[in-house]
Design a binder for these strands. Structure first.
Length: 270
DNA sequence: ATGGTCGTCATACGA
């Protein structure tokens, strides 16, 4: 019997503030696994009970006060995978990995929040951009040396890699998130052991934005979006990915995150 | 060329 395994990834930009939105989305979409970025909550204050009430009784989280923070939530038992690097030697809550076994088949889930990189795309002048590039290179080198099978990688990778992943390729070539240095680094990381499952289902030039700046007024009219959030699958899983969606309408809810959720559906035994 | 807006935490800072 083949069932469906649905994974949702969302940069929620404060988990506690947007718990009601997460409850609406989970009731509507019923994901089995949820990967959150920018939870902005330290572990002692993690809202476990509220998530239990939504049915996500298995919770891995790694947060810090005010900044960053990632979580993986599931309706089925999760095993935390702890054999990955800290990335740039910083324990700043940007990655969690988990394994879950359903229908006798194991799945690895990576949840990443790549540094945004500041404003100036110059590694010499901007420490935040240097950190971002070092993070991308280290991730690429690590997965090149340790390729995986049966794995998904999702999250806010803070890079819009392709010309059709931004509202204007020409106008964003020197803007952090779409510089050639970043897009080449992201594509090299992906190519180590993954395929772009979102684009597999929505080939370029299909519009597939996941982020719109808070600073853009009239976002519907101007639609200056970027595809910063991603869903990758190892090639052995790619044929199991039977659906991929971006929940764009969530961007127009009251008090939205600047990112919207994405969904991956896998055909899964069980 | 500039500033535009959020969330957190209380004043700047990161996005």
């Amino acid at each position: 019997m083949t069932k469906k395994l649905r994974l949702l990834s969302w940069n929620i930009n404060s988990l506690r503030l947007r718990l009601p939105q997460l409850a609406l989305i989970t009731a509507e979409e019923e994901p089995d696994v949820i990967c959150l970025q920018e939870t902005k909550v330290q572990d002692a204050d993690f809202p476990s009970e509220a998530l239990n009430a939504m049915g996500y009784t298995h919770q891995l989280f790694k947060g810090m006060k005010s900044y960053n923070g990632v979580a993986i939530l599931a309706r089925h038992p999760l095993r935390r995978l702890g054999h990955y690097p800290l990335w740039c030697g910083r324990d700043d809550c940007r990655h969690l990995a988990a394994s879950l076994t359903l229908g006798g088949q194991a799945l690895t889930v990576h949840n990443f929040y790549v540094p945004a990189g500041g404003d100036e795309p110059d590694e010499g002048a901007n420490d935040k951009f240097a950190h971002k590039m070092a993070f991308l290179r280290e991730a690429q080198a690590w997965f090149a040396a340790n390729p995986e099978r049966g794995a998904l990688l999702v999250g806010d990778l803070n890079v819009a890699p392709g010309p059709d992943d931004v509202w204007s390729h020409r106008q964003l070539l020197k803007v952090v998130s779409h510089t050639p240095a970043e897009t080449e680094a992201l594509e090299a990381w992906c190519a180590t052991t993954f395929s772009d499952a979102m684009r597999h289902h929505h080939p370029a030039p299909a519009r597939l934005y996941t982020w719109w700046s808070y600073r853009n007024r009239n976002r519907l009219a101007s639609d200056r979006g970027r595809r910063l959030d991603h869903g990758w699958a190892t090639p052995d899983l790619l044929e199991r990915v039977v659906g991929a969606r971006v929940l764009e309408s969530v961007r127009d809810w009251e008090r939205p995150s600047d990112h919207v959720p994405l969904l991956l559906d896998l055909a899964w035994p069980g």
